[in-house]
Design a binder for these strands. Structure first.
Length: 123
RNA sequence: ACCGCAGACCGCCUUAUCGUCCGUGUGUAAGCAUGGUAGGAAAGUCCGGACACCAAAGAGUAGCAUAGCGGGUAACGCCCGUCCGUUGAAAGGCGAGGACAAGUGCAACAGAAAGUAUGUACAGGUAAUGCUGUAGUGAAACCAGGUAAACUCUAUGCGGUGAAAUGUCAAGUAUAUCAGCAGUUUCUGAGCAAUCAGAAUAAGGGCGACUCGUCCGAUGUUGAAGGGUAGACAGCUUGAGUCACGCAGUAAUGUGUGAUCUAGAUAAAUGAUAAGGCCACGCUUUGGCGUGGACAGAAUCCGGCUUAUAGGUCUGCUUUUUUU
RNA sequence: GGAGAGGUGCCGGAGUGGUAACGGAGCAGAUUGCUAAUCUGUCGACGGGUAACCGUCGCCAGGGUUCGAGUCCCUGUCUCUCCG
């Protein structure tokens, strides 16, 4: 297993994102939230992941960029938790939803818990 | 030395591990190797350009901007020099700094009177008179009065829209385009007439304010051609570029020679973790322990301005004190 | 990425460069056995005064123009709207 997050694994298609927000389900482990939907496009990757931090919580672009990077990093190091349990292609969007500035360790811990919660939901 | 002022610059460092994006090489490919991978403000979007498109991008008016004088520049509301005003003990800082002798307007309260000006008291003066001075009110009062960040006038400049502009590619089609046919209203001509031919046409709309000017202009049907939107590629980073030295100029700046290539993403990369060092703050048994790392993240590209910014370095200058 | 509008007491909301209206809420009083309704007054901050009252500062923040600024002009900040 490689801990990478290459370009083809990123959620970019506007139509897929619209589908995700209109039909997707979600799991959350405060302050993190994961929205997901089955990707029915032909030749879809097994996993497509996007990351988002709202302007509502952090006003400055530097802060938003920082937390998006942290989310990407924790996803990259723990994505095997998701991939090992997926059978059909899925699209995901990963949110950070608080004004508090959590440390890297706290966010990583919450991410692992969130991914495990998702796996339980799938069974 | 201290205090202050001005200008220029840096703005955490090193190593290891795991990654992102771009280029190059290699490979059928997965990949591998290698080089690079955030700012002085990238910010605010306040000015000025480059570049692209729009229909005539036309003319005039309106509107907006600028404002001592001279220079620089692709251009500017920027920069340099200088005069004047103002502020500071000084170095220095700040200034929308044209015109009220073109016209119009405005001036609370106070005051006799605030614009067509003109009254009182005292003093002076005259043949006589606000004729002269002083007092009093007020920001402003015998002055061509004050006020233009009041309308305005003068001079100069400005077409509009912004890379989500724009171009190309593959798929498919509109109430929009073009052509044919049918066809409304009016006029003219031919004809006894049916009808035929030619021309025009309103309401309204476009040219993002108005006027002129100019263009379109009932509707149905058949065929042709063919958008927008979503996707891909181009635009997209070599440019009024950066560095060094010389020359011209008080300077801004210009110019010559040599060297050099320094982000290019698009739900949007430029990072995370660990250890050590450096700095700051707090505690302190002066050995250490704990916490933290300024402001802030490119989105077509340049020149400025404005605002935010822990800490530090260098250069020049002023005042005061001391020494020679 | 681009364009525009606004900020006035606790709330809503007027305001030609010349004394910051008005309504609601609140507070006090009147009325009532009590409450509601109604009526009257008060109602930004600070300082002084026993009190009546007086003074200074207040219209998002900081500058500027002006005799005088909520109003005119700059700079910043916050909120909202529009294009896509």
């Amino acid at each position: 297993m490689k801990f990478t997050y290459p370009k083809h694994e990123k959620l970019k298609s506007k139509t897929t994102i619209d589908l995700l927000f209109s039909e997707g389900k979600s799991v959350s482990k405060y302050p993190l939230r994961l929205v997901y939907v089955e990707n029915t496009e032909p030749n879809a990757e097994l996993i497509k992941m996007g990351v988002s931090v709202s302007k509502k919580y952090f006003k400055k672009a530097v802060d938003r960029n920082y937390f998006k990077r942290v989310l990407r990093e924790t996803y990259r190091l723990n994505k095997h938790l998701l991939i090992d349990n997926l059978e059909k292609p899925h699209a995901f969007m990963f949110f950070y939803q608080t004004k508090e500035r959590l440390s890297y360790q706290e966010i990583e811990e919450k991410t692992i818990q969130l991914f495990q919660k998702f796996n339980e939901r799938q069974k």
